[in-house]
């Protein structure tokens, strides 16, 4: 399926959706949103791209094998829980820095955990998508 309307629209929608997914990710710990939803939106953006241009193009756009995304995300999430060990607290105790950033608010380990979730969700969703669509060769 090649539709010029969809292809043109996707070119503009993809960056917007990715920006929106970041927005969802960063507001997650104070307001509705978060890593999981953000990750789903981001992978929906890539799914849209693969519908418009084909799976091969989407893979090229992603550049990196989804397995590495899964591994990176898991590692970030695990690491965010282990930061508490440095101050001899229990696993996953939230640590907040005192710095206040204009966009994100306070930075802390929950944000790092959310970032990990975000990356894992993108990785897994795209892995599923690529696996399912690879086999459908008419």
């Amino acid at each position: 399926m090649k539709s010029i309307i969809l292809q043109t629209a996707t070119r503009y929608l993809l960056p917007m959706l990715l920006l929106f997914s970041f927005f969802l990710l960063f507001r997650g710990h104070n307001s509705p949103g978060g890593g999981f939803v953000g990750g789903l939106v981001a992978s929906a953006a890539y799914a849209l791209y693969s519908i418009a241009f084909g799976v091969e193009e989407a893979k090229k756009l992603l550049r990196i094998e989804p397995v590495y995304l899964i591994a990176t995300g898991l590692m970030l999430a695990l690491f965010s829980g282990m930061i508490a060990f440095f101050s001899f607290d229990t696993f996953m105790t939230a640590k907040w820095s005192d710095l206040n950033f204009p966009l994100f608010g306070k930075l802390g380990t929950p944000l790092l955990f959310d970032l990990g979730v975000y990356i894992v969700v993108i990785g897994i969703t795209l892995k599923i998508l690529f696996t399912i669509s690879e086999e459908v060769k008419p």
Binding site: V67, Y68, L78, F85
Partner: peptide, 27 residues
């Protein structure tokens, strides 16, 4: 106490860490 807490966590954390390590070298 901290050591014991860590010890109780390790049966969960160790396999996860090794799994992540293996995923990075999946080939």
């Amino acid at each position: 106490t901290f050591d014991i807490e860590l010890l109780v966590l390790l049966p969960i954390l160790l396999p996860l860490s090794f799994a992540i390590l293996m995923l990075f070298a999946w080939k």
